[in-house]
Simulated assay, not measured.
Amino acid sequence: MTDFDRLIDLASERLGGAALWATDEFFAPKENLLKPGRGIFVPGKYTDNGKWMDGWESRRRREGDRDCCIIRLGLPGNIHGFDVDTNHFLGNAPARVSVDAVNLPGYRPLSSLLGDEVGWTEILPPSNVQPGSQNLLGIAPSGPFTHVKLTIYPDGGVARFRAYGEVTPDWSQLLLEHRVLDLAAVEHGGVVLAASDEFFSDRRNLILPGPSRDMGDGWESRRRRGPGHDWVIVRLGRPGALRRTEIDTQHFKGNFPESCSLEACLALGAQNMEALEGAAWKEILPRTKLEAHTRHTFALADVGPVSHVRMRIFPDGGVARLRLYGAPLEGA
């Protein structure tokens, strides 16, 4: 089964994903598909068209056998699988779903996506889904893609749709435009591989674009009651020589870490924690005191090209964002 926990939701509204068109959205709009969370249910809430639902829902189909929705991914990438969440859709969930994809970089008007000449490729064949469930559907990794088309059979409602995969940045263009950039950023292919604890919020929030919205939009561990400290490991989108970091504790006021440190290593091709066993970590930021609700900027020790960074926080707490600025290696 695909390990969705280590992948990025390429369709996320937060990353720029957008539901562009649907054959029918009589009961609930397509835009709900990409919103955060799993969707809610409000008993007794109705619209002029019927029961209010937090998802995308088409009317009962009397002709034809399917409805579909075209989604522009927020970031292009290789897709590994999908979460087709039918939460709260019980007597009105589709029986099956399928997904097609296409790679069309740059701006594309909607009319160009609806023509017969679009080279859609089926990457998920029609698959059964259960009502009121997170349907996790893995596929053989494929791509890169920029758009997907979700098809439901024959009609009904889906609360949320996630397209999990790995970002594929256009490094040829990035290297033309930038000499130093945030190599940990999700839009540059950065991945938060693992964390010691994610009790309050997801480690992947650390490298999202823009400032955090609230405490839930960062990474926060539970209160540590024993010895030790918490940590998180980031795989850079491209190896490079790091120069400075931003460690942002915005919104964390009574629960920020007392201090932190950074270590880095060069482990080309290490895609998971197992591949980092025995890695030679080098300190690039000694243990340094942190402040509440503050964006800290620190210079980093030059240890040459690195591919992974480990941040330790002492003893626990929350960090909103981690930025790791450096010069990417060409040809890496």
Rank of each mutant, 00 (worst) to 15 (best):
F256Y: 07
D202E: 13
V167T: 09
G132D: 04
L300D: 15
P126L: 03
A28W: 08
L322Q: 15
L136V: 03
D316C: 01
A101V: 00
R179S: 08
N49W: 02
P36S: 14
S201A: 12
R6T: 01
T245L: 11
A184Q: 15
E31V: 01
R38M: 12
V232S: 02
F145T: 00
G190S: 11
R179Y: 11
A327Q: 13
R72H: 14
L136I: 07
D217K: 11
K51L: 12
R243W: 03
G218D: 05
S261Q: 11
S221I: 00
A184C: 04
G16P: 03
S221A: 07
R61I: 02
P109D: 12
L150T: 00
E187K: 05
L322E: 04
R108D: 13
R60I: 06
S133D: 15
N255M: 07
E246G: 10
V167M: 06
G317P: 04
L208W: 13
E25R: 06
R323N: 08
N128G: 11
L20C: 01
F256S: 02
A279D: 02
L242H: 05
D214Y: 09
V167G: 12
N272F: 14
G37E: 04
W281S: 01
L268C: 04
V99E: 14
D214I: 05
P227V: 12
E122H: 11
